[in-house]
Amino acid sequence: MARLRRAWPAARSTARSTTSPRRRCRSLRRPCVACATTGLARDPGLPELPTLQELNLIPGGYTMTYWYGMFVPTRTPAPVVARLRSEFAAMMAEPKMQEQIRGMSLVPSAFKAEEFGTHLAAEAAMWKGIISAARIEMP
Rank of each mutant, 00 (worst) to 15 (best):
E114S: 00
M64S: 05
A90G: 10
E87R: 14
R85H: 12
T14A: 13
P139N: 01
V72Y: 02
L49C: 14
T51I: 14
T18C: 13
L120H: 03
E87M: 10
S109L: 03
M92R: 01
R24Y: 06
T65K: 07
P44T: 11
P139E: 03
L52A: 13
L106G: 04
A36R: 08
R75W: 13
Q98M: 06
G60W: 10
E115H: 02
A133G: 15
P95G: 10
T76P: 05
M1D: 09
M97T: 00
T74C: 11
S20G: 06
S17F: 03
R42V: 09
L57G: 03
V81A: 10
W8I: 04
R42F: 15
E114N: 06
A93H: 05
Y68A: 02
E87L: 12
P95D: 06
R23T: 14
L28P: 06
L52S: 15
E48G: 13
P59T: 07
R16I: 07
H119M: 01
A113M: 02
R22A: 10
V72D: 01
E114K: 01
G69L: 04
E137H: 07
E114P: 05
Y68P: 01
F88E: 03
R30D: 10
P73V: 04
S86Q: 14
T37F: 09
A110G: 03
L28D: 03
C32G: 08
R16Y: 09
R83L: 13
A10V: 00
E123F: 04
C35I: 06
R22K: 09
C32M: 01
L49V: 07
T63Q: 08
V81M: 10
T37A: 13
P21W: 05
P47R: 09
R22S: 13
A125E: 00
E87S: 14
L84Q: 03
Y62W: 11
P21H: 00
A78N: 12
E99C: 05
Q100P: 04
A110I: 02
L55G: 11
E48S: 10
A10H: 01
A15P: 14
G103I: 01
T19L: 13
T19K: 15
C32W: 06
T14R: 07
E48Y: 08
V72K: 05
A78V: 00
Q53T: 06
P73A: 07
Y62E: 07
S20K: 05
G69K: 00
E54C: 10
S109D: 04
G117I: 00
A125W: 04
G39V: 13
Y66N: 05
F88I: 08
A121C: 05
A110H: 00
A113S: 00
K112H: 00
T63M: 12
S86L: 12
P47I: 08
A113V: 07
G60N: 10
K128T: 11
A90K: 10
A121N: 05
H119F: 04
I130D: 08
G39P: 10
R102Q: 02
L120M: 02
L28H: 14
P95H: 11
T76Y: 04
P108S: 09
P9F: 11
A34I: 06
M91S: 13
V107P: 06
P47A: 08
R22M: 15
M126G: 08
L49P: 05
T18I: 10
C35Q: 09
G103Y: 03
